[in-house]
């Protein structure tokens, strides 16, 4: 299955290649430009933080890269695939095969247990039960949730829920994990731990992360920071 295939990359090592990306939302008669001509290239194995004030366009950019929405203009290639012209169904299949997502909140399916949530995308991809267990349980143990496999999401803390989301996002060894303010609802210690976890996974397994945040503490710890301002890239620094 593609879901566990080795990380696939674009022809020249570019995992994300976005050119001239513009997104204009229309609310009734009002046009809200959320992105105005963004160019961004991310190579495989990077850990990138999208920084910027609230409303600067971070979520919009992540959604476009994640094929959750179509840009108004411009083109985006992810893992060598043009994601700007996918149908809903193609986009869903693409996400399942290539991407992992962690959102700010509501990451888990309420009626599934901790373990079932973590293995959800693997089950969707059709992996046999034993194989899913072998992949997911060590990861859950790794993030300190080994004892809580059968809990329901509402019985877990916010930090625990986000860790399950991270496990789910990386379990299928996707080319790219997109995380939209995954720590926004956590206290600083918990969010620090979650960031540590993602950095470790990035280094150990080479998973590429693109991470949106406006938390200065977290931004300070990233190697590459792309700053957005009013829908444009204001700065792109690698430290």
């Amino acid at each position: 299955m593609t879901a566990v295939a080795p990380i696939s990359a674009g022809s020249n090592g570019e995992l994300i290649a976005a050119r001239g990306v513009t997104k204009i939302y229309t609310q009734g008669k009002v046009e809200v430009p959320a992105l105005r001509g963004v160019d961004l290239t991310v190579t495989s194995g990077e850990f990138v933080v999208l920084a910027g004030a609230s409303g600067s366009g971070k979520s919009t950019l992540l959604n476009l890269v994640g094929a959750l929405d179509h840009p108004t203009e411009g083109e985006i290639f992810v893992a060598g695939r043009d994601v700007t012209h996918l149908s809903r169904s193609q986009a869903a299949k693409f996400r399942l095969a290539e991407l992992g997502f962690v959102f700010q909140a509501y990451n888990l399916v309420p009626v599934l247990t901790c373990y079932e949530n973590a293995e959800y995308t693997l089950a969707l991809a059709g992996l046999p039960r034993a194989r899913r267990r072998a992949l997911v349980v060590p990861l859950l143990e790794r993030v300190g949730l080994g004892d809580l496999l059968d809990r329901k999401p509402h019985e877990l803390s916010g930090g625990q829920q986000q860790r399950i989301a991270v496990v789910r996002a990386i379990a299928s060894r996707p080319a790219l994990v997109l995380a939209d303010e995954p720590t926004a609802n956590l206290d600083s210690e918990t969010s620090g731990n979650l960031l540590d976890l993602m950095l470790e996974l990035n280094e150990e397994k080479g998973t590429t992360f693109v991470f949106a945040s406006h938390d200065p503490d977290l931004i300070a710890r990233a190697r590459r920071v792309v700053r957005l301002k009013d829908g444009r890239i204001d700065a792109d620094e690698t430290r």
Binding site: R88, A92, L96, F103, Y106, L124
Partner: peptide, 15 residues
């Protein structure tokens, strides 16, 4: 809406 949207984001096809 959110929950079903999450499923879709995770790769569940509209069908």
């Amino acid at each position: 809406v959110r929950e079903l949207g999450l499923l879709s984001a995770l790769g569940v096809t509209p069908r």
